[in-house]
C-alpha cells in the first residue's frame, strides 16, 4: 500500500482518477436524490401510478381533510384550478376529483403539472391511480379540459395528520416535449 502511494508515476494518476470519480459522483447524486425523495417524501413528491385502494383497508374511524391547490408557473396565461377545493374522506377511500384547465395563451402548448404534498411526511401515503400529472398534456389554442385525479390516502397515514394539501403547479413543458403525451379528458 505504502509503496503504491510512494510511486511517483502512479500517485498522480490515482489522484486524477479520484477527481474524475468525484465528478461522476456529483451526477450520481441526481438519481440518488430522486429515489430518496420518492421514498421519504422530501419536497412532498408523490409516487407513480398505484393500484386502487381496497375496500377492506378503509379506516372508517377517522377523517382526513384534503385541500386541492393549483398554481400557474411563470405567469402562465391559463385558467387552472381544482373543481373541488377540499374534501373530507376516510383513509383508504378512493376518490375522483377534477382540475380544470384552459389554454388562454393563444398558442398550442404542452404542459406538465408537478404535484407536491404538504406536510411532506404525508406525501408517500397519497396513492394516485390516475393523474393528469403522470404525463405531459397537449392543449390546442383555447382548449378547455377537466383533468382527473383518482386517488386514495393510504390507511397507514400517521394518526396525527388530519389535514393535507395536494398541490399542482402547471409548468410550460414545450422545451421538454416527450413523444408519449396524453390528452386524457374527463367530463366537462
Amino acid at each position: 500500500m505504502t509503496s503504491f502511494f510512494l510511486n511517483k508515476k502512479k500517485l498522480p494518476l490515482l489522484l486524477t482518477i479520484i477527481a474524475i470519480l468525484m465528478f461522476g459522483f456529483g451526477f450520481a447524486l441526481v438519481p440518488v436524490y430522486t429515489l430518496l425523495c420518492k421514498a421519504t417524501g422530501i419536497n412532498g413528491k408523490t409516487g407513480g401510478p398505484t393500484q386502487l385502494g381496497l375496500l377492506e383497508e378503509i379506516d372508517n374511524t377517522r377523517w382526513v381533510t384534503i385541500q386541492f391547490i393549483a398554481t400557474n408557473n411563470a405567469n402562465l396565461n391559463w385558467a387552472f384550478y381544482p373543481k373541488t377545493t377540499s374534501i373530507k374522506l376516510h383513509p383508504g377511500e378512493n376518490t375522483l376529483i377534477y382540475y380544470y384547465a384552459e389554454n388562454n395563451s393563444g398558442k398550442a402548448m404542452t404542459v406538465q403539472a408537478i404535484p407536491s404534498v404538504t406536510p411532506g411526511k404525508a406525501a408517500k401515503y397519497v396513492k394516485k391511480t390516475e393523474c393528469f400529472c403522470f404525463t405531459q398534456q397537449n392543449f390546442k389554442i383555447g382548449e378547455k379540459r377537466d383533468m382527473p385525479v383518482l386517488f386514495h390516502v393510504d390507511a397507514n397515514l400517521p394518526k396525527e395528520i388530519n389535514t393535507l394539501s395536494l398541490s399542482y403547479t402547471l409548468f410550460n413543458a414545450d422545451k421538454y416535449k416527450k413523444a408519449a403525451t396524453s390528452e386524457k379528458q374527463g367530463h366537462l
Partner: peptide
C-alpha cells in the same frame, strides 16, 4: 473530493 462536484 469537492471541486469536481462543483464542476459537476
Amino acid at each position: 473530493a469537492v471541486m469536481p462536484v462543483l464542476a459537476g
